[in-house]
């Protein structure tokens, strides 16, 4: 499922909303989450999971093509931890 599929699926469940509005809402959700992480803020969605920003230390990397050493500066990476409810629901149907 991609973002358009998600929007379509939501639009079916919300027949009184214009499809365009659903699209704007979905975009606003992910944009506001990105902005929040950009500010270093943690996001917690109960039952779904939490997102936080972790800092990777600077390190010496290598260009795999030339083998030359390059310094890779400190990097911020987003980290997602699945919430208890979703973790259990995903695992429930073990095949």
């Amino acid at each position: 499922m991609n973002k358009s599929d998600l929007i379509e699926s939501l639009a079916k469940k919300l027949p009184n909303l214009a499809g365009r509005d659903v699209e704007v809402i979905v975009n606003t959700i992910f944009e506001s989450m990105t902005e929040s992480l950009r500010q270093g803020d943690r996001i917690e969605i109960r039952g779904f999971g939490s997102f936080e920003v972790r800092t990777r230390k600077p390190r010496i990397g290598r260009n795999p093509k030339t083998g030359m050493s390059v310094e890779v500066g400190e990097r911020k990476v987003p980290f997602f931890k699945v919430g208890k409810e979703l973790r259990e629901r995903v695992n429930k149907a073990v095949i």
Binding site: K3, L6, L14, I29, I45, E85
Partner: peptide, 22 residues
Amino acid sequence: IVELVFDTMKETLEKGEKIKIS
């Protein structure tokens, strides 16, 4: 609506389907 968005995502993932948000 926000509740519905996360519920829909949870239902999809529960089915083992992946979600790609560009």
